[in-house]
Each structure stands twice: as C-alpha cells, then as structure tokens.
Simulated assay, not measured.
Amino acid sequence: MDDTLTSTLELAADWADRFAELTTDERRQLALWLEESPENAAAFARMRRLMSDTALIDAFDKGDAPVQPLAPLPELRAGSSRPARADRRKPMLGRRQAIAAGLAGALALPFAGYWLAGGQTAGSPPPLRFASRVGERRRFTLPDGSGLLLDAASRVAVDFSEGRRHVLLEQGAARFDVRHDPARPFKVRTPHAGMVALGTSFSVDHLAEASELRVFSGRVRLDVADQETRVVPADRWALVHGATVSTGSFDPTTHPDWQSDWLDADAMPLGFAVQRLARYSAAPVRIADPKLASLTFSGRFRLDNPRQSLELIGALFGLRLEKRKDALYLA
C-alpha cells in the first residue's frame, strides 16, 4: 500500500472515531476534506462501517488485535481543506482512537490492489458484522441508509457490494427499515428461508429450528426451499418450521413483539419461548426434557425479566425453574 493511501486511511479513521463529537467548524473541515477526492469519501465511509463492527471492537478490548499508534490528526488552516501541523493533540490515544488506528493499519494488507474510489477488488471484500450482547438491543444505520435494530444476543453479516444488498441473520432477531433501491434488492437470509424486501419494514427471528417473518409495512417476498414463493403483506407474519409455513395476522401498534420488551405468545412452542428469553438471561436457559419443547402456550411475558417470565411459563406446565451448575433449567 502506498504512503498516500495509508495517509488517507489514517485520516479517515481519526475522522470516523471523532465524528459524534465534532464541532460545527470541524464538520465543515470534514466536509471540505471529503470533497477533495472520491478516495477520501470512500475511505471515510468504509471506516464508519468498520468501526460499527462490534466483533472488531471486542477483539481490541480483549487485546486480540494489534494496535499501532496513529499520528495526531493535524488541524486545518482557516480557508484550507489541507491539514496543517498541530502539536496540541494529546500524546496518548483513547480506546476508540486506538481501534481507529488499528483499523487503518489492518487495512494495509487486505486493501493492497484495492481502488477505494471504484470499490473493485480481485476478490469479494469480507462482510460487515453487527452484533448485540445478551440483554442489549442495538440500533445501526447500514451502508445504504437502511435502519437495523438488533434484538439482544443477535448478529448479522452484511454484504453491500455493487449491485447487491445481502444480509445474513446469523443469530437472534433483527428489524430492517429498508431504504428503497430497485437496482439493488434488499435480501435477508436465515438457514430456513430467504426474504426480499419490496419497499418495507419487517423483522426476522432466527430460531434453532425455525424462522419467523413479521411485516410492519410494505411487503416481503418469502422464499422457502421446495415451496412456491409467497408475498407477505403488512400486518402479517409467517413462520417457517421445517417443511411447514404457517401464517397469521398481528397488530404492529399493540404487539410489536420483542421491540417493546414483550414476548407475545400465541400457541407458541415452549422451545421457541425459551430461546427468545435466553437472549436476555445472563445464565443459559435449558429445558430439562427436550420432548417438552413442542408444548404450546399463549400469553404476554416480560423479556427484560427473563427469570420471572420463565417461572410463569413453567407454571403453566407444572415445571419449575431450577438453577444448576451450568444453566437455568425448566424441569
């Protein structure tokens, strides 16, 4: 990687790190720098995406990723978009500045031969990953401007290369508020089904043996292996469980499910409920007898108090919540 590109990435990393705290004057300076060249704008956009990857941040927190010190970002002279040298920056970098610096350095090898302006590579770039921790919901803006809301303990991988917008829901649940772009269909996939947004807001829940789609506005095309494609309209849900696809209606204003701290169960299998509540429990949750997982129940239960909800649900079946060495068990 040449020195010019390295410098561009380092500046982009520092701007991205400080973006939320920029003053009005600093934002003007950033705008001037972005207008100087397509390379600047592309580097800044990629740094913003990379720095929202929680897996990378966790790696730096644990010391798993090398961090190289970043040279102080020079301030700009009045009336100029070129940086001028300044000595007022603190010599020690904070955690996120170290991450920004490390990302710039880490890009040196993968981006050899990569032209930032054109976005062309010899091979496909790795996907961006967004994640949330147990008991934590997180909101992100995807590279195309679409909104992403992750349920607790959830993770997605995003591939937004030229001509495509593909999201793999690797774990948990997510809501997508999709920015319309007919040239690049917005696709979400789980191991059980594929969904294509037709201008919409919808959520997808990835369970161990099933996937649930809920459409809040617009329509979503649902593709399931060995079945005819179907279109799910607003205020409808579809559950893909094995070779079976069940559908029904819901009121998104009163039952938005996990987005409002509630588990809304309507003939829900006990196994599905345990998986969803486990996303909010510090201790793993198990069903002592796996045969009980198919039992169904209905009701509303708090997600932010998983232990109490598990006790209430267990009582419906004469089960108790027991704390054992490795997990909480319904037995």
Rank of each mutant, 00 (worst) to 15 (best):
D3P: 00
T6H: 14
L11E: 14
L11Y: 12
E21Y: 02
E21A: 14
T24Y: 02
D25N: 11
D25F: 03
R27E: 14
Q29T: 12
Q29H: 06
L32N: 04
W33S: 04
L34V: 03
E39L: 03
A42Q: 08
A43S: 13
R46C: 00
R49G: 15
L50T: 02
L50C: 06
M51C: 10
D58Q: 13
K62L: 13
A65H: 07
V67K: 06
V67Y: 01
P69F: 08
P74V: 05
G79S: 03
S80P: 00
R82L: 12
M92C: 00
A100Y: 05
A101C: 03
L103T: 04
A104Q: 10
A106L: 14
L107H: 02
L107M: 12
L109H: 06
G113W: 01
G113T: 01
L116I: 03
Q120Y: 08
A122Q: 12
S124R: 14
P126C: 00
P127G: 11
F130T: 03
S132H: 06
R133N: 11
E136P: 03
F140C: 06
L148F: 10
L148Y: 08
L148E: 09
D151G: 06
R155N: 15
V156W: 13
F160Q: 07
G163A: 08
H166I: 06
E170F: 03
A174L: 09
F176T: 02
H180R: 14
T190E: 06
P191T: 11
A193F: 03
S203F: 01
A208Y: 00
A208E: 13
E209G: 11
S211Y: 05
V215W: 05
V215F: 09
L222Q: 09
A225E: 15
Q227V: 03
V231K: 01
V231L: 11
V232P: 04
V232F: 01
V245R: 05
V245P: 11
D251P: 07
P252M: 04
T253S: 15
T254V: 13
Q259D: 02
D261T: 06
D261W: 02
D264P: 00
D264R: 08
D266F: 08
P269A: 10
L270H: 13
R279W: 13
Y280C: 09
A283H: 12
A288I: 01
A293S: 15
A293D: 05
S294I: 10
R300N: 13
R302D: 14
L303V: 04
P306F: 05
Q308H: 06
Q308T: 10
S309F: 02
E311W: 01
I313T: 04
I313K: 07
A315F: 00
G318H: 08
R320N: 14
K323R: 15
K325M: 05
K325D: 15
A331P: 03
A331F: 01
